[in-house]
């Protein structure tokens, strides 16, 4: 299915309203969380959030627990209705949909993955994967075929007859992903899918998910409390605190120029060195020529623009610190990496 964009327009969600709450005055006065709780006895889980997820991109919403990120993602498939504001999915306002239209939309265009997977324990893996198809009454044969196909996609081919309690945590989460993909939805909603897994499995699943999403090109709203995960997966990252979106930008922008003290504090722990790649540390080809070291480049190893720093260091060592050539997507030489250019790049980021 064609990817959809998802847009939030000044969305508010206030919980525990005793009906008397005057939302407009809260919005005007920009009350803090504590003041809101004291004055009205309610909590603003989402407070005036606006952002857009472009079709086909992964947008990571990053925040600690209680920041409202899980509430936010549930607005997309209207498991939670906003107190005010609009959510536009594929050009249509979700709030205008009837309950039936919404069900259809959930079954066909949105797949969701949960932190605790939430598989049905009394059903086989195959029946779990085919859940959305079953709910919209697809034929048994179609269900079976699609389930097998999706299980293969998440590298669980042949596990269809097992039950969830026979699977490890990582495998269950892959079943959860296969279930979300079964209807071939335009939008993937990932609510901290890898948070409950141990670090090695988490890393592995992140890599698999990244490869998979590059292949499938689905619009993804990815919720996480892990900055590294957000940096690794997201094309864009939004940092949330107390229901507000503090900063939105690419990983580079968030890590490089945090515009809010909270974001800055958050980012401090994470090394910006991780973001270095061939493109950022290379010398442009002409500059290398004018420096005039005159070394022959014909036999030098060729690298892609997005080769990460760890790999560069390893390669550089292995090749005795001789220059390496960076090529663009078209295969043309664009720059050169030497030991000193890596050092300079690292120095700039410290």
């Amino acid at each position: 299915m064609k990817a959809h964009s998802v847009e939030f327009k000044d969305v508010w969600k206030v919980f525990g309203t005793g009906s008397k709450l005057d939302l407009a005055s809260v919005q005007r006065n920009d009350l803090s969380k504590a003041a809101l709780l004291e004055k009205y006895g309610c909590v603003a889980a989402v407070a005036g959030v606006s952002f857009k997820v472009e079709a086909g991109e992964i947008f990571c919403v990053m925040g600690l627990s209680g920041s409202g990120k899980s509430t936010l993602v549930r607005h997309v498939n209207r498991l939670i209705k906003p107190s005010s504001g609009q959510i536009i999915v594929g050009g249509e306002d979700i709030n205008q949909k009837s309950e039936n239209e919404m069900r259809e939309l959930r079954a066909r265009t949105m797949g969701m993955v949960f932190q605790n997977v939430a598989l049905l324990p009394h059903r086989t893996v195959r029946d779990n994967v085919a859940l959305s198809l079953e709910l919209r009454k697809a034929s048994v044969r179609q269900r079976r075929e699609i389930a097998e196909e999706k299980l293969e996609l998440v590298q669980l081919a042949g596990w269809g007859d097992r039950y969830p309690d026979q699977l490890s945590g990582g495998m269950k989460q892959r079943v959860g992903l296969a279930r979300a993909l079964a209807a071939d939805p335009a939008i993937l909603l990932m609510d901290e899918p890898f948070s409950a897994l141990d670090p090695l499995i988490r890393r592995e699943l992140q890599d698999q998910f990244k490869a998979l999403s590059t292949k499938l090109g689905k619009t993804t709203l990815f919720i996480t409390h892990d900055l590294d995960e957000a940096v690794r997966l997201g094309h864009h990252i939004g940092v949330m605190k107390d229901g507000k979106m503090l900063q939105i930008g690419s990983a580079d922008e968030i890590l490089g120029s945090p515009n809010d003290p909270y974001v800055e504090k958050f980012v401090q722990g994470s090394s910006r060195l991780k973001l270095l790649k061939a493109e950022t540390v290379m010398l442009p080809l002409e500059e290398f020529r004018t420096v005039g070291q005159g070394q022959p480049l014909a036999d030098a190893p060729r690298l892609r623009l997005d080769t990460p720093i760890e790999e560069l260091l390893g390669l550089s060592n292995r090749h005795g610190n001789t220059p390496m050539v960076v090529v663009d997507d078209g295969g043309a030489d664009v720059g050169v990496i030497t030991a000193s250019s890596i050092l300079r790049g690292v120095h700039e980021r410290l």
């Binding site: 959930r106 079954a107 797949g111 969701m112 939430a118 049905l120 959305s132 919209r136």
Partner: peptide, 11 residues
């Protein structure tokens, strides 16, 4: 979570 998942898939 199970109830939520069922709803999320259009039950």
């Amino acid at each position: 979570e199970v109830v939520e998942a069922m709803r999320a898939f259009g039950a």
